[in-house]
Design a protein around this nucleic acid. Structure first.
Length: 287
DNA sequence: TTAGATGATGCGGATTCTCC
DNA sequence: GGAGAATCCGCATCATCTAA
């Protein structure tokens, strides 16, 4: 059947629901009896819109400003940094108010925060006070708002490249202590754009100039001794929130890679090497 | 192993809020 | 206005972590 014949079928049977047709190209479809139909301009537009929506990355995430959070990581203990990280899934879009997940009109109370952190209300109040003193969280008439300088959820400005995304679904799947999460949080200012490896020069464009950090340097960043840091890194590797790369022949010289399904700087899906390294964790947690 | 630092929590008194 | 509940705050104690 040529195009003219098909157009005649289309004219004779106009109004056939698009959903009952089987697409055979961007323009043409066939009904259950085999008759050809040509999509209208608006139907092609709708189909393209549906394809774009299906292909879009729909995971929820918040942005962390890598340079600004050094003000947090340099002054707070690992545990308190972990508490800040645990707040990420509760940041409301645009307003930055801490809210119940999926309920942007229901701000978190001190009791809710106690549940999020798995501590008593008394302790939650102490933690909030400390975060307020450091201008990380603001409280206004019982509503808690996280400082946009450090974390936010809205379209990022195009000229800001010092941002890293935290994906909620995967983050919440890890059963880890606040102290261990805080350890990871302290590494965020050092994540390399292309490789997700912890390095001293996360903003250097030429990969050959990047100085990647070994376990000893990572221990210094976290403010721990080498042994304790190695134990923490082992726990984090076991849980899958970080991975390891080796620099060359010497397998003692390990580099730390963050799980790109939890923390990632680039747009879209991680590249092939990272996908392979963390494939198991992706399969477990991301639907 | 031990001492010091840090964090979590219980206790009790003071203050504020709510309801009658 | 008063009673009871809820919340806040400071202090003390205990548990855990860390470094030597």
């Amino acid at each position: 059947m040529n195009n003219d014949a098909a157009r005649k079928v289309l004219q004779l049977q106009s109004g056939a629901p698009v959903g009952s047709l089987t697409p055979i190209s961007a323009e043409w479809a066939r009904d259950e009896r085999g008759a050809l139909f040509k999509y209208t301009q608006s139907e092609r537009y709708e189909a393209a819109k549906r394809r774009r929506w299906a292909a879009r990355d729909k995971r929820h995430f918040s942005f962390t400003h890598m340079q600004h959070i050094r003000e947090i990581t340099q002054g707070l203990s690992n545990k308190y940094c972990g508490y800040v990280l645990l707040l990420q899934p509760y940041i409301a879009f645009k307003s930055n108010v801490l809210v119940t997940e999926g309920r942007e009109d229901t701000p978190l109370t001190i009791g809710d925060l106690a549940q999020v952190w798995d501590v008593s209300k008394r302790t939650a109040r102490v933690i909030i006070n400390e975060l307020e003193v450091r201008s990380i969280v603001f409280e206004t008439s019982g509503t808690f708002t996280i400082n946009e300088r450090y974390h936010f959820r809205k379209k990022a400005a195009d000229d800001v490249d010092a941002l890293i995304k935290t994906y909620f679904t995967t983050l919440k799947s890890f059963d880890m202590t606040a102290a261990d999460l805080g350890f990871v949080y302290k590494l965020l200012p050092y994540v390399h754009y292309d490789t997700n490896v912890i390095c001293a020069d996360p903003f250097v464009e030429n990969p050959e100039d990047v100085r990647f950090l070994n376990e000893k340097a990572v221990a210094d960043i976290a403010g721990m001794n080498e042994l304790k840091a190695a134990q923490a890194l082992a726990r984090l590797r076991k849980s899958g929130i970080i991975g390891e790369w080796f620099t060359g022949h010497d397998r003692r010289d390990k580099l730390t890679v963050l799980n790109p399904y939890v923390f990632y700087r680039k747009r879209g899906e991680p590249d092939g090497t990272l996908r392979t390294l963390f494939a198991a964790k992706r399969a477990e947690n991301v639907k």
